[in-house]
């Protein structure tokens, strides 16, 4: 029983990482119908930003401040990834709205370029970071010992989710974003600048991917292909959750995360993946538009 509980907890932790990655994808896909294949590389950018922060701190800062680097790395990863995302939107994606296949290919190409750039700057071998001291060790939760990093990750994801929900549902620009998501043409007719909404939303989605990258450094090595490993699962989460629905993404992220870990525990790593994909395929036969979908009685 305890083993299963630990697996469930690991699943929760995997789910929260998937959630963070999928959130960015879900809002860009929901808003602009653009499948951003370079999303994984935005994760990579966040991860390398963390690595750079660590390098700066070890070289130029007193050793006593070392732990601070990770706290600072999270907002930095957000900003750097968001800026790259804005650049990507402005130079490439903007010209490809309404052409899903072209934008898919173009962003895939951009992803490869970014990977190669990282390889040129940081070298092909993986690099690693030293966890800050406050994230070391274990913690007792319901009689189980779990690593503090995992707790920290779940907490951070919850904070990100709350901030995003607050932005989308309580602020003026969030309201504009939701209006554009639901009816782009009408949104521009009431005076919303859809261009500005597009670029801001894309930047936020990219920034969240950056934060996800910063978190991933805590549980594994950093390499140019760090994003590609998670991106397929994140796409699954978006599809299962239903496009454009925050709550759907949350439910399906934890669902996929927990199931994935449990299946891998009962069988083995590759069999677990097969099972989860079979389940998703079956699920989509039953509900092609995902767990939650937009349904209205508006006149068509």
């Amino acid at each position: 029983m305890e083993a299963i509980l630990i697996q469930a907890f690991n699943g929760l932790s995997l789910g929260s990482i998937l959630l963070l990655i999928a959130l960015g994808l879900a809002i860009t896909f929901g808003l602009m119908k653009v499948i951003n294949m370079a999303h994984g590389e935005l994760i990579m950018i966040g991860a390398y930003t963390t690595y750079v922060m660590q390098t700066i701190f070890t070289q130029y800062m007193p050793a006593g401040l070392f732990d601070l680097y990770f706290i600072l790395a999270i907002p930095c990863a957000f900003i750097v990834a968001a800026l790259v995302g804005m650049l990507l939107e402005y130079t490439v994606i903007r010209h490809l709205y309404g052409r899903p296949l072209d934008s898919l290919l173009a962003t895939f190409g951009v992803g490869l370029i970014l990977q190669q750039t990282a390889r040129s700057i940081f070298g092909a071998p993986n690099v690693g970071i030293v966890s800050p001291s406050f994230l070391e060790g274990g913690m007792n939760v319901f009689g189980m010992t779990v690593p503090v990093t995992r707790i920290f990750i779940i907490g951070l994801v919850v904070v990100c989710l709350l901030i995003l929900a607050f932005y989308l549902y309580k602020t003026n620009s969030g309201r504009r974003t939701r209006a554009v998501m639901q009816n782009r043409e009408m949104a521009s007719c009431v005076g919303i600048s859809t261009r500005r909404v597009d670029i801001t939303t894309f930047a936020i989605g990219a920034g969240i991917a950056g934060v996800a990258g910063a978190i991933l450094t805590l549980i594994g090595p950093i390499g140019p292909a760090i994003g590609t490993y998670y991106i397929v699962d994140a796409f699954m989460v978006v599809v299962v959750g239903g496009v454009g629905m925050l709550v759907g993404t949350v439910v399906s992220a934890f669902g996929v995360g927990v199931m994935n870990t449990l299946f891998e525990y009962w069988t083995d790593a590759s069999m677990g993946k097969v099972l989860i994909f079979v389940l998703i395929v079956l699920f989509l036969q039953w509900r092609p538009s995902g767990l939650f979908s937009l349904r209205t009685r508006s006149l068509d």
Binding site: Q182, M186, A187, S188, C189, G191, T296
Partner: peptide, 27 residues
């Protein structure tokens, strides 16, 4: 663009209403 015209003082009630379905009436 349409948003420029809206700021110039155009108010538009389209055929088929096109309200934002997931937003509250107030929003």
């Amino acid at each position: 663009p349409a948003n420029y015209r809206a700021r110039k003082g155009f108010g538009f009630v389209p055929q088929g209403r096109d309200i934002f379905p997931q937003l509250t009436v107030y929003e």
